[in-house]
Simulated scan of single mutants.
Amino acid sequence: MPGLNTFAAFLLDATDGLQGPKTKRAKRFLEKREPKLTENTKNAMLIKGGNANLTVTEVLKDIVSLLDICMQPLPKLRLEFFSKKSDCSLFLFGSHNKKRPNNLIIGRMFDYHVLDMIELGIEKFVSLKDVKNSKCPEGTKPMLIFAGDTFDLNEEYRRLKSLLIDFFRGPNVPNIRLAGLEYVLHFTAVDGKIYMRSYKVLLKKSGCKIPRIELEEMGPSLDLVMRRTHLASDDLYKLSLKQPKALKAKKKKNISHDVFGTAYGRIHMQKQDLGKLQTRKMKGLKKRPAEKSVEEDGGISPKKTKSA
């Protein structure tokens, strides 16, 4: 393995199952790579081709600036090899040539093998620095908006939508504050093109608790066209979406919901014996000893003969 140090080579061999860990450092490394019920945030490789022009380079730089916390720029080497080495499940490759100018290839991995790849051509690009407006801090989690029926009707566009969500969603957070919702990524699919626009959310005074919202374009903006696609088969795609049994919500019996989300529960009770129904404790309703003995004898009492 040229260009790798001894420790990295050992770790790669260990992950292939050729030998077990011999040091605590290697053991910790392998434990981080083990399957988890809740996976960590997906990392992305950003690869610049040797023939990339200035436009492609600026696009890659702007994406790194917007989503700095999830990006790892890597040289153009074996894709699956470095995906396993750096634990990256997403990649973006930029290149430029006469046949396919201003080319971007976005894709993702499953089990360190290529799952989906979609090739996009850049027709128009406005850089982040060309828009003279205020910017969001680096690493801000964006709100994603998709417009256009094509994203739901066409299988290739449906996969592209899923890919873009994986790529730009950012880390999972337990809570969100209103002031943190300050960045919008808008994707529109119409007439065979994909328009990517980014906006900064401005919260203005409205005279009430709910602020007035305005969107201010901050860049970058891209006009893209879909070129070639390499999508996984339906069986492999379904396998990649499989969830562990521990994460699946257990179905609760005898519970239903209406259209408004109200939960209704059904309770099964045994048949009620009205003879044992508790009544008001009044002296006048208490049974006499003679009545109790009649009930114990089966409800039939012999008639008493009058004494002469």
Rank of each mutant, 00 (worst) to 15 (best):
D234W: 03
L202M: 14
E182I: 01
L224M: 04
D62P: 06
K304I: 06
K48D: 00
Y112D: 15
K85G: 01
N172R: 13
H230L: 15
K61C: 01
E291K: 12
H113D: 02
Y195V: 04
K141Y: 02
N97C: 13
R33T: 10
R25V: 11
L11S: 10
T140H: 10
N102I: 04
D130H: 13
P75W: 09
T229E: 10
N103Q: 14
G180K: 06
A263I: 07
P174I: 07
G17F: 08
Y264I: 12
D68S: 08
V126H: 04
R25T: 13
L79R: 12
L224P: 00
K205V: 01
K24D: 09
E138G: 11
I69W: 01
K132G: 01
L215C: 08
E34H: 10
K276L: 09
F146W: 05
S240Q: 08
L164E: 05
E156M: 05
L277W: 10
P289M: 05
R78M: 02
F125D: 13
D223K: 12
I106F: 14
G284W: 07
E296S: 09
A147Q: 13
S307Q: 14
R159F: 06
K27T: 08
N5A: 04
K287V: 01
L30W: 02
F187M: 03
M117W: 02
G192T: 01
A189L: 02
F93I: 14
T23S: 15
M196N: 00
R25Q: 07
D297R: 11
E155K: 11
H257K: 09
V64M: 06
F125Y: 15
I267Q: 06
Q272I: 12
K251G: 05
A52D: 00
E80A: 13
G207L: 05
K245W: 09
V126K: 10
N43F: 01
L144A: 03
F125W: 14
E58L: 05
L90M: 14
I255E: 15
S256W: 12
D130S: 15
E138R: 14
V56Q: 01
F7D: 07
T15A: 07
S221N: 13
G192W: 03
S89C: 06
A9R: 13
D149Y: 10
L181F: 00
C88I: 01
F91I: 03
G192K: 01
D62V: 01
I145Y: 09
K76S: 11
P137R: 14
L247E: 03
F81N: 02
N43Y: 04
G121V: 11
M71P: 07
P174V: 04
L285C: 07
F110W: 14
K84R: 15
I105M: 03
E291H: 08
E123T: 14
K209N: 14
I145Q: 11
E119G: 04
V259A: 11
K42R: 06
D166R: 01
F81Y: 07
N103S: 15
Y237H: 12
R197D: 09
S86A: 12
F260V: 00
I105A: 01
F167H: 02
A189D: 04
F187H: 05
E58S: 06
P142Y: 08
H268L: 08
H257D: 00
I210N: 06
G180C: 02
L239K: 15
T188A: 07
D235Y: 10
N51W: 00
